[in-house]
Design a protein around this nucleic acid. Structure first.
Lengths: 250, 250
DNA sequence: CGCGCGCTTGACCAGACTCAACTGTTGTGG
DNA sequence: CCACAACAGTTGAGTCTGGTCAAGCGCGCG
């Protein structure tokens, strides 16, 4: 089932809203590691709720280089930008085995007609994605490899924490060095070198796919930017006239 | 008056929708060149419709480096990501003299309650911004200075054309080389050198602030990415049950 | 058991940065 | 109305981060 904590971070949902959100998606689809959910250029009819597993979305540039736009984690919504296009902007591929739930655009549209407040929260979520892209942009191409990796690991750390899979600053990291490279715009070779430096400095530790942040504070000092948190339920969110039945939280 | 062509590119607006869109903004505010409309960290109560002039939004990083996130042109909406935050994410500054119109979040929220289709188009516009950020990200830090500048000029060319200020591939370019640097993540010094190369290659020409693209085709061949166009009025956009009174376009 | 993928390391190279100096233009105050 | 400050643009010299190419290693899986 789609984890709704992302929406609960934006506002208290009424029971109505919660169930509307949960009934957005079709029956869940299970994917093996390395499968392609959607290919750049495909015609699209909806988007995906991310239920479990690691997934990434990528672009292939004319030069042949692959750009990984983002690593998606459960709770994310995948492929929503395509609603404004006729062909998919990016390729969505599973990293580990994963579960998704498809949302046809028609059902999504009904949200705007019947659940205006939820539609607004959706728009907030999109804005948060946009902000995170802005932050990535601020770092990519401007910060050093060291700084970029620091930011990446901190970002994953904060996003994985609400999923309950981080303990003692340790988590599974199913990304290859090449993926990390495509994610940051750094060569895999240089990622390797930089990781070694971070390890030598006692900032991080890797045992197979198990990844540990040894010195969170120092890593935060290196990272040029800190993850953002959305504002919870701004006072203007609910109309004074209607749709105000949301004081009762779920 | 706010130019609505951006919305007309997304769908035919009913007369109702058109007037709802136009009545979003307060009385227009005039700014001189170099004024700051909003500062990073300010508390925000709304966003801005961009009526005329050149404006940019920027971030200052811990290192002191400035990142120009985007150059805004008339028809854009400024500062909308802040709706999900309690403090402004970026600083909005005029490049030339400019005119804006303020939209308080309350009035924006009412759009979702009374004009669901327009609210959806707003969300589309946000998604397009997100896509453009994705494309910028694909280039920044991955492409060479030459390629980045090619892309920047092509982007401005396509965005300025609907404003009717481009003739014979020539337009006013009020950006300093330092701004271009902050926009692309390149040093002003290197921007200068790269511009000289492009000039020597007969790709562009500059006479003061007048900028001309001499060889559009070759510039497009250099640019790693092409500007996107949104899909016009996807068939699922309007509900079959309600809000279907939009066949009559404006 | 061997193939292949991901990781590691070395040697060399180059695009972009830094620092610095100089020019031309604009605008402003004495 | 001139002098000067401030700023945008230009160019050179030297440096360095990160890319390229290449080779070797180790582990998991078929």
């Amino acid at each position: 089932m789609y984890p709704t904590f992302r929406y609960h971070a934006l506002a208290n949902l009424s029971a109505d809203e919660e169930s509307a959100l949960l009934s957005l998606g079709d029956r869940e689809a299970r994917w093996k590691a390395g499968e392609t959910i959607q290919r750049e250029g495909d015609t699209v009819h909806g988007f995906y709720l991310h239920v479990s597993g690691w997934i990434h979305s990528s672009l292939v540039m004319r030069s042949g280089a692959r750009l990984i736009q983002k690593v998606h984690l459960p709770g994310d919504m995948l492929g929503t930008p395509n609603m404004a296009l006729d062909r998919a902007a990016d390729t969505i591929t599973t990293i580990t085995s994963a579960v998704t739930s498809f949302v046809p655009f028609e059902r999504f549209r009904d949200l705007f007609y019947h659940q205006p407040r939820l539609a607004m929260l959706f728009t907030f979520a999109v804005q948060m994605e946009r902000l995170s892209l802005m932050d990535t942009l601020a770092v990519t191409g401007r910060a050093s490899a060291r700084e970029q990796l620091a930011r990446l690991f901190l970002d994953l750390h904060t996003r994985l924490t609400p999923l309950g899979v981080v303990s003692n600053d340790t988590f599974e990291l199913p990304l290859t060095q090449e993926m990390i490279g495509d994610l940051t715009g750094i060569t895999a070779v240089h990622v390797n070198r930089t990781l070694r430096v971070l390890r030598e400095e006692g900032l991080i530790e890797q045992k197979g796919h198990l990844f540990q942040i040894l010195d969170l504070e120092r890593l935060q000092a290196i990272a040029p930017i800190r993850p953002r948190t959305p504002r919870f339920e701004p006072d203007w969110l609910s109309s004074s006239r209607e749709g105000n039945s949301n004081a009762a939280a779920s």
